[in-house]
């Protein structure tokens, strides 16, 4: 049994212009101690997927189908009150923007301690003591002092460390990190990635790392899911994906990266832009931008099929391309 199993998850947003299928039948699994990266560009549904797992999708968004099995139990069937016992306790989340996800009017110590009071029933004093311990573990200097500070008194990197301390305070089995380092500078990013890697290894935590940065994927992930227009287009172990990308979109993404260890005159950009989810092209959603598209791609929607053991590709020409 996997730690987390997402099956055919569908999250739709009902807007005045029509229904937006942000997450359209997404399936994947995460094992304990494993880091699964979900990659894709803005609007591909990677963040909505993570919010759906946590059941934090707000109106007009709605989970309309599928299963989110955590240790075998379908979380989508749980009553709201039951779900609260999982959120922040068994499964927790780090967001991209550490400033807007911390409450500006409470001290750092109070906010880290809150999850412990709530889920572990600790007293105020005990919670504060453990909060300080947690702040030390995530590498915050002068933790006793910082615990009494407010979020605005800390730098972006320090705030993200506080978020990680909150997320890991109850020793969750699954950590969802949604673009945890996108707002940070590279040297601070290196510190934070290092920290997430180290802590998840120590506690055997499963990690879902959501990012648009293939560099971060290559450094952190064990397995990778590539999303495009609300669907999984490729899934593979990390070495396999970088050595033999199978979907034309993945190939395009890799070609469009300027690399540190080589110099090219031009980058292989992917032409066009992500399609409007309200007005999806027929057939494969990627075909208008795909250099390998053939007539059939404009009509037939490809299925996600296993090409190699553990390597799945959603492409009619999988095997021919790549």
């Amino acid at each position: 049994m996997s730690l987390l199993e997402v099956n055919e998850l569908k999250t739709y947003f009902k807007t005045a212009e029509g229904t937006v299928p942000s997450v359209n039948g997404v399936s994947f699994s995460v094992e304990a101690g494993e880091t699964l990266a979900i990659v894709g560009e803005s609007g591909c549904g990677k963040s909505v997927t993570s919010l759906s797992i946590m059941q934090l999708v707000s109106d007009p968004g709605e989970i309309v189908g599928g299963e989110v099995r955590f240790e075998g139990k379908d979380l989508l069937k749980l009553p709201k009150k039951e779900m609260r016992k999982y959120r922040g306790n068994e499964i927790s989340m780090i967001f991209q923007e550490p400033m807007s996800s911390l409450n500006p009017v409470f001290t750092i110590g109070n906010q880290v301690g809150e999850v412990l009071r709530r889920h572990k029933g600790l007293s105020r004093g005990e919670a504060k003591q453990q909060a300080i311990e947690m702040l030390k573990r995530v590498g915050i200097p002068r933790a006793e002092q910082i615990a009494n500070n407010f979020p605005h008194q800390l730098s972006g990197g320090m705030r993200q460390r506080v978020m990680i301390a909150i997320a890991l305070a109850c020793r969750p089995k699954l950590l969802i990190a949604d673009e945890p380092t996108t707002a940070l500078d590279v040297t601070i990013q290196a510190q934070i990635l290092d920290l997430i890697g180290k802590l998840s290894e120590e506690e055997n935590t499963g990690v879902i790392l959501i990012t648009h940065d293939l560099g971060v994927v290559a450094e952190m992930a064990d397995r990778v899911v590539v999303m495009y227009a609300g669907e999984v287009v490729e899934e593979a172990p990390v070495y396999e994906l970088f050595e033999r990308p199978g979907h034309p979109y993945t190939i395009g993404l890799m070609g469009s990266l300027p690399k540190m260890n080589e110099q090219r005159d031009r980058l292989d950009s992917i032409p066009g832009a992500v399609p409007n989810l309200l007005d999806m092209p027929p057939g494969c959603p990627f075909h208008p931008r795909c250099p390998f598209a053939i007539e059939a791609c404009t009509q037939t929607k490809p299925a996600l099929e296993e090409q190699q053991p553990g390597h799945y590709v959603r492409c009619l020409r999988a095997g021919e391309v790549g």
Binding site: Q189, A190, D194, A218, E219, M260
Partner: peptide, 16 residues
Amino acid sequence: AVPVPDPRLRRKREPL
């Protein structure tokens, strides 16, 4: 500190 998009070059770093 720049993450390299190649898992074969993954290494233990000493972040600044």
